[in-house]
């Protein structure tokens, strides 16, 4: 603090601190607290707010258990509330998205970090970044067109003789998965690239010299070294996917509910911000738990990720 004062003078320093404080407290922390607080209060007509009916309870949270629909979980048929079903699907398919992005990003990151010559690296990074300059909405619609029944993907596959009749890509959760993978794959590539790039190439050569085939070099040397990168990429992709609203809304079919859409429905259509807030915090808490559990299973520490 003294250092800042000496370097920038009183006016600028308090300006910085004040703006940061305003952003953090007024724009982030307070609204979140307000939502958290209202998530425990009932949705009441304006006249009753603050009245005797306005008491704290977890009733909003319990609204997730309403009604019963069948669902098959690992082959078991169970009756479950439709909202819980959507939440479980959201978590499950966010996990699938994370796995697919990892499978795509690992070879790409390895190629960027260890194989490609440093001279062509800026060009490759540019090529990776260019799609990000286009808005997410446009990119999702582009995929929607590509995957359409009479769209270019089916046309190309039929022209190449790979398939005979068009495949209905936009059904169930597949278009959502494709869209999310495409949107978030770079969040996996860059942490992985960073981790791999810090690996001493001599270790790869040493393993090679000791007789290891390529897959064992990856399994025993490169993959363990990349673990913190995998973890931070996976956390980001999982959280962003589970919290994504736009991609499921655009790419989704009639049978692909995403929990964020549930929340949006409650907040904007039912105008019930209290229950919406409760569901939003539920999603956040459960995602955090899933991530913590995954980190415990894969023996990753939070400090590894922060590196």
């Amino acid at each position: 603090m003294d250092d800042l004062l000496r370097r920038y003078g009183r006016g600028l320093t308090w300006g910085f601190v004040g703006l940061t404080f305003f952003w953090l407290v007024i724009l982030v922390i307070l609204p979140d607290f307000k939502l958290l607080e209202s998530s425990f209060r009932p949705y009441l007509p304006v006249v009753d707010v603050g009245g005797p009916k306005d008491t704290y309870s977890i009733n909003n949270y319990l609204r997730i258990f309403g009604g019963e629909v069948p669902m098959s979980i690992f082959g078991f048929e169970v009756l479950i509330s439709p909202r819980v079903k959507v939440l479980l699907y959201t978590l499950w398919y966010s996990g699938v998205v994370t796995l697919v992005t990892f499978l795509l990003a690992y070879p790409l990151a390895y190629y960027l970090a260890k194989i490609v010559s440093p001279k062509s690296l800026p060009t490759l990074f540019l090529l990776l970044f260019v799609p990000l300059w286009v808005s997410e909405v446009l990119r999702s619609f582009a995929w929607w067109i590509i995957l359409a029944l009479k769209g270019p993907l089916n046309a190309v596959l039929i022209a190449l003789g790979i398939i005979d009749t068009e495949i209905r890509w936009i059904s169930g959760y597949s278009p959502v998965i494709i869209g999310l993978v495409y949107t978030y794959v770079l969040f996996m590539v860059f942490p992985l690239y960073n981790a791999m790039q810090s690996l001493d190439s001599n270790q790869i050569e040493a393993a090679d010299d000791l007789g290891a085939p390529w897959w064992r070099i990856h399994w025993r040397v490169i993959l363990p070294h990349s673990k913190p990168g995998i973890a931070s990429g996976a956390v980001m992709v999982f959280m962003l996917s589970a919290g994504s609203l736009l991609v499921p809304a655009i790419m989704g079919s009639t049978t692909s509910g995403w929990f964020t859409q549930t929340i949006q429905g409650i907040m904007l259509e039912e105008q019930d911000w209290n229950t919406g807030a409760a569901f939003a915090f539920m999603l956040l808490t459960i995602c955090t738990l899933v991530v913590t559990l995954a980190m415990w299973v894969f023996k990753v520490k939070l400090s590894d990720i922060a590196k």
């Binding site: 001493d200 001599n202 270790q203 050569e205 040493a206 393993a207 010299d209 000791l210 025993r220 040397v221």
Partner: peptide, 11 residues
């Protein structure tokens, strides 16, 4: 052959 690297390259 077995190579010992300048920086050893232990795992």
């Amino acid at each position: 052959t077995a190579l010992i690297f300048q920086n050893l390259a232990l795992f």
